[in-house]
Each structure stands twice: as structure tokens, then as C-alpha cells.
Design a protein around this nucleic acid. Structure first.
Lengths: 239, 239, 239, 239
DNA sequence: GATGAATGAGAGTTCATTCAT
DNA sequence: GATGAATGAACTCTCATTCAT
């Protein structure tokens, strides 16, 4: 076999893998994991059933491969890019939120259906193993948010007294829940604006506002000053 | 048939319905919807397979009945009670959050498995129908949060410029996501404390903070004004 | 449900079980275990595939049920009867041998195909468990041979110095191997006579022949006597 | 291509064939024929799946090749050697029995798993063909036993009135059945001694015993006659 | 000659649901 | 009303075999 033939063959393999992966993604996304049979996936990909198993071993591994691909091809690269190219903490958060929401939404507009089962699949498939592939994937992705928050605190743009874990849950929990309700009602229309509305209360809670700290001091000083004036006035009146 | 016989018979029916419902709840919660066969449900309830369908028509309807029961017997009553007996807005929110989280956690500690599929079941079963039974149930429950937030704003305990919809998503999204991650790591241990950590950033964002509040400023100005008048009065008296 | 209806129902169940069992027996026997699909069994029995599993749980259990039935309905009863009605040890052995061989042969003339796999199934299905159902069944059946041999020794009809275990293996090993080769060549024709030919060498080895013991003694005595006479003759010739 | 290159190439082919054969033997022996996929065989042999079929055409032919090899490389050569080097009939039988049993036992201690299916494969594969390759192989091997028995009878070491066919069945049936039960219980431990126990009853039945043998009687009578003649001669001399 | 991707029929088994009793 | 036997379609997955490279 010539080198170019080998290369062409490798390309064909990857091509096929991609086709199956995409067919499965679309079906899982639109009909759900349990409602999608391997037969349907094979038919949608235009290959035989055996081929699906040739490439992915089992339906669960296929699922895992989809998620892996989603994390490593879609979620993580742009998240890293955001960290590299945007410096302001609030801008970063907003951009990450939009990225997260639109990544879930794109890819057949229903990739989030996966996330709805992934906990379940994870539990059933991997058992109690704390280090399931899925958790590892997710941990890496979540790491980007962690970095934004840590750096935000270091730069004095965020309150320094916040814990990471709850913030993660607030961030992603809010976005995914909000995405769900919004898409139910209006589809993807107006999603960007809605993400801003979701972020508002969070950002409020995170901001190291100029007010919280220095003002009370100023207020006290001014009150002091007022007191002094009042005392002087009173002395004068006594005279 | 005498009246009492009829009554007894009706009671037996309801008793049976309850037994099946509870058996199904336990199984769905611990093993998941798809991994629980109607046969297992029947066996766990001590009735025949036919009886399950006699009472609930289909597995999906059984599922719906469980959720209905969960909303109407567990979620809603206590939520209403919280509104009746607690007046402070932050206390109400905290109490509702705890109630929500522990209601999901109790009932075999895994009721949340239901929520993981319920959107899916809903979509598959009910289709695009906007007014599915599930949405109605959920809307009623969410109404309690709405009332807390509205009344909080009216009483001046919350910022008045917040929109309800995103707040709902922030509240429930955060709690359910946080519940999931926490239970994965530590089970139900320390859950109450974690709910507080989750609420913190939210409450920060909701509070009518000293900053945004124009009052302290106004107060100082009034004090200023008073001072000024006093000083002028004093000056006049001196003359 | 009336009593008679219940009885009729029970009869129908047993009838169905029997039909499936017999269909499976025939197919296993003629085509072998692995070459017989549950689908074919269902079709041959005139029931749906689900019904086969309703009754027997799995293909392996169905196999086990067939063997159980074979041991308990065919092999054991007649073996017990032989022990009850025939007293002579050699007659008993011959009768048991014929019974064994013809039981394997009858039932679609190929039940022995089962025995050919049963070791395999046993190993695969039951694992290393020494007390597999199959071994228990077999032990009970083999017990009949044991009793014949023990009683034969007690009555002085068999040599008393033989061990049971090798005799069992000689008996059943010879019969099954011989059955196989004979049926291959001539079908069941002349099988009875061939069983006698197989038994002959065994019976020879088992018999407490009157010869083995006293004769050599007598021979020696007679040789002694001859010697004495020769010596006397020699003395006489010396004179 | 030079001659030596051609030779080397031929050697490589034979080498490959051997490797596949041995891998398949090991797998068939330890896991059984049906539980061993051609993929596993290829993997164990370190070749591609296609190559297996290149060399052997089908799984059944591979099986046949293994048995062929087993007969021609293992069973027959030593059997011939036994006939060449050992002269006593009982020694020959004992040696052949040990050889048979240990040949089955060696090769991963489970080659007998093959025999358990080979009849089955034979039937399925070759159909009713009386002259299947397997039967030919077996006939040649069995021929060694035939010769031992025939020569034993000719030399007067065995009863002359025995038929070959049943003796074959007694011999191999007993050994294989006994091997199976012994290995189940004790593995290969103490197997040699057990073979002796199995042979005992057979040898008893084969021996030209003092009883059935008319010779000793005749010898005595001849001795008697000699005596008488001597006595009469003596008497005559005395006169 | 050697490869291994591709096949697709067929395997055992499960399951929600029906319906005669 | 209650039963549970019966269904049969659908499921995931395996496998011996083929054939283009």
C-alpha cells in the first residue's frame, strides 16, 4: 500500500467515524438517547449496524464519544480562546455564558437533550466510579470558569471572599435551566438578550462595588463633620 | 351495596393506587425511568402487571401521576405554608430553597432522577403541547417563588427593578445543579450549608443594597440641610 | 374463577410447557444446542418467542429443564423399577444398560446429542460450582448403578474387591460410546444385541468366578500328587 | 525468485499456519468451539482476521485441521511407537490408555473440550457422509488398538473369542468418560493411577483366565498320561 | 499474500401492553 | 376489579465471512 493510499484510507475512516457520530448526535439530540436505536443511527449514517459497533463498540461508548467530541471540539477550544483574548472579567463571563448557551443550542438546536440524560447514563454506565470519563471532561471545561473567577478576584474586579464551587453551580445551573425555559417558550429567538438578564443578578452579587467599601467611610466622615458643625453651633448658641 | 361498603371499596382502590404509586416512585427514583420495567413495579407493589395498567393506563401516565403527586403532596403544600408563616423575604427564599432541595433529596434520596428525565418524557409523550400537565404543575409551584419576589419588592426588601423570569431560572437552576454536584460528591451530608452558599451570591444580587439605595445619601443631605439651617439660625442669633 | 376453571387453566399451562419442552427437545436433539435458535423453538412449539422466555427464562434454563425432565421422567423411574423387580445382579445390569441406551435413543432418536453438549453447557452456564443442577441429577441416577453393584457384592454375585467409581465410568462410558458408534453405522437396528456384546467383557471382569479361586489349588494338589508318583517311580527305577 | 527464497517463503507460510493452528487449539480447548470467535483466534495468533480465512477457509475447516494435526502429530505417532517398542499385550494396552488420556489432557489440559463438540461439528458440517475426514482420522487411530487386540489373541495372551468392535467402544468409552469425571473432581492429579483402576475390570475380562482356558487341564492330563506311562514302564522293568 | 473495514443476518432477551378468564 | 399468560416488535450486540486495497 502506498503512502498516499494509506493516507486516503485513514481519511476515509475518520470521515466515516464523523458521519456516524454526527448522525447519532442528531438523533440523540432530537429524539433522546433511549428513543434512538442503533439501527436508526446506522440507517441515518448510511452504514450497516455492524459498522456502528465496529467503530464505537457499544451504544454507550458512542454516546461518550459524542460528548467527548462536544467538549473537545466545541466547548473547550472557544472557552480557551475567550480566556486568551478577552481580559475584562465581566466580559469574559458574558462571553463564556453566550458560548455555553449557543454551543448547547447549535448542533441541531437540541444538544442539551444530551445533558439531560448524561447524569443518568453516567450513573448507569460508569457506576459509582468518581473518575468517569464524563466527569473528567466536565472538570476540564469547568476549569475555564474557575480561572476567570480566580483572576477576577486577583485583579480586584470581583469580591475576593467567594467560593468557587457554589459559583460554578450558580453559573452553569442558571444558564442551562434558563436556556431550557427560554427555548421552550421562544425557541432561540432573543436568547442572547435573555442570557444577559440571567447574568445580571449574578454579576451584581459578584461585583466588588465601589460603594460597599469606601462610601460608608465617607458617609461617616461627613456625619462626623456634621456633628462637629452641630457641636460648634450649639456652643455658639450657649454663649 | 351499602354506603359503607361502597366507601370501603373506594378506600381500597385509593389504597392500591397509593401502593403502586409509591412502589413506582421508589423504583424510578433509585434505578431511573427506563431501567424500571412495569413488571418490577407490579412486583414491588404486590399486584399483578395488569393492575398497574388498570390504574394508570400506561407507564408514562404512571410517571405523570407520580410527578402530580409530588407537586401536590410535597412541593406545593409546604411552599404555601412558607408563604403563610414566614414574612421576611430572605427567610422565605432560604426556606423555599431548603424545601425544594430536600424534597428532591428525600423520597429515597434520588427523586431528582425523575427530573432528569421529566423534560424528556414530557417532550416524547406530550409533544409540543405548550400546556402539558407537567408545565401546569410546574407553573403553579413556581408561582410561590414569584409571589415571594413580588412581595419582597413591594415591601422594599428587594430591588424593585428585577424581572421575574430570569430570577426563577437563577433560583431553581442553581439549586438543582448545585444539588446534583453536591450529592455526587458528598451525598446529602452538609447539604443545608451548601444551599446557603448557593443562595449567597443570589441574595447579594437581589438585595436593595446601601449603594443603589439613594436614601443614605439623601439622609446625609437632609442632615446637611438641617445643619446649614441651624448654623444660619445661630449666626442670626449671634448678631 | 371457579375451581374447575382454575384447574383447566393450570392444565393448559402445563400443556403449553410440555409442548415447548418437547419442541425444544426435538430441535436440540436433531440440530444441536447451538444450532437451534429460540425463534425456531417458538415456531416449532406454535407459540411466540416471548412465551418461551415466559416459561423458561433463558435458553440455558430451557436446556436444564429438558434434562431435568429426562432424568426424572425417563431415566430414574425405570431404573428404580429395575431395582425393585429384578433381583439377579447380571440381569439388573443388563436391564439398566438397555434402559439407558434406549432412553437416549428414543425421544427423537437423538437425545444423546444433548449429552454431547451437556458438559459444555454445564461448564459455561454453571461455572465451577461443583453442585450444579446437572451434577445433582446425574448423581441421583448413577446411584442406581451403585446400588446394583453394592448389593451384587454383598450377595456374593460380584467380586467384592471392586471400587465403585471406575466401574461407573466403565459402565456408562462404554454404553454411550458404543451407542454412538453403533447408531452411526446401523441406526438403532440390532442395538439390543450390541449392548450384550458391550456388556460381556464387563461382566467377565465383575464375576466372582468359581474358577479363579479353588481350581489353582486343586491343580497344585494334583501336580503334587503327580510329583509324588513320579518320585516313587524314579525310586523304583533306581532299584 | 531464487530457490532459497522460495523455500524461505514456504517456511514462513507453514510457520504462520502453525501459529494460527496453535492459537485456535488453545482457545477452542479452554473456552470451547462456539465461545471462540475467529476474531479472537486472529488476535491470539497475531494475524489479521482475513489471514485466518486465507489459510483455513472457514472456522469449521480450521477445527478439522486442528483435529487432523492432533491425530497425526500427537495420537498416531506415539501409538505406532507403542506397537513397535512394547510387546506384552497388557503393557501395550496400559501404555496406549495412558497415552490417549494424557494426550487429551495435555494441550492446556482441556483438549477434550474438542471431543465434546466434534461429533456435533461433524454432523452439522459434513452431514450424513459416512466417510467424513474425521471418521477416517479416527479409524486410523483406532486401528492401533485393533492390532494390539488381534496380536494379543494370536499370541494367546487374550481370549480368542472376543469381537473387536465392542472392545474398542469399551476401551475408548471408558477412558474418555473416566477422564471427564476424574478431571472434574480432581483435575489431572492422580490421573495415572485412575487409568489403572479403569483398566482393571477391562483386563480381567480380556485375560485368557485359568478357567476358560482348557490348557492347564490338558497339561495335567498330559502329565497324568506321562506318569502312567512311566509307572507302567517301571512295572515292566521290575518284572 | 495480507489486511481489516465492512457487512447484515441472526442471536438471545426485554418489554409495555392486551385480553380472556 | 383483578389477574397474569401471551404477545411480537424491537432492542443491543456478535459473528463468520468477504473483498477492495
Amino acid at each position: 500500500m502506498t503512502d498516499s493510499a494509506r493516507r486516503r484510507s485513514r481519511e476515509r475512516l475518520e470521515e466515516r467515524e464523523r458521519i456516524i457520530l454526527e448522525a447519532a448526535t442528531e438523533l440523540f439530540a432530537s429524539a433522546g438517547f433511549h428513543a434512538t436505536s442503533t439501527r436508526k443511527i446506522a440507517a441515518a449514517a448510511g452504514v450497516s449496524e455492524g459498522t456502528v459497533f465496529h467503530y464505537f463498540g457499544s451504544k454507550n461508548e458512542l454516546m461518550l464519544a459524542i460528548l467527548d467530541r462536544f467538549y473537545n471540539h466545541t466547548l473547550n477550544p472557544r472557552a480557551a480562546e475567550i480566556l486568551d483574548t478577552i481580559m475584562g472579567t465581566e466580559d469574559r463571563l458574558r462571553e463564556l455564558a453566550l458560548h455555553h448557551v449557543f454551543s448547547l443550542t447549535r448542533n441541531n438546536a437540541l444538544m442539551m437533550r444530551l445533558l439531560q440524560v448524561y447524569v443518568g447514563v453516567d450513573l448507569e454506565f460508569i457506576g459509582q466510579n468518581q473518575e468517569s470519563p464524563l466527569r473528567l471532561l466536565n472538570r476540564a471545561y469547568v476549569g475555564h470558569l474557575d480561572r476567570i473567577l480566580r483572576e477576577g478576584a486577583e485583579r480586584g474586579e470581583l469580591r475576593p471572599d467567594m467560593e468557587l464551587r457554589p459559583l460554578r453551580d450558580v453559573f452553569f445551573g442558571t444558564l442551562e435551566y434558563g436556556l431550557r425555559t427560554h427555548v421552550y417558550r421562544h425557541g432561540t429567538e432573543g436568547l442572547e438578550g435573555y442570557v444577559d438578564q440571567l447574568l445580571n443578578p449574578l454579576l451584581q452579587g459578584l461585583r466588588k462595588t465601589a460603594v460597599d467599601d469606601p462610601e460608608p467611610q465617607a458617609t461617616l466622615e461627613r456625619l462626623d463633620a456634621v456633628c462637629t458643625r452641630l457641636e460648634e453651633t450649639a456652643k455658639r448658641l450657649e454663649r
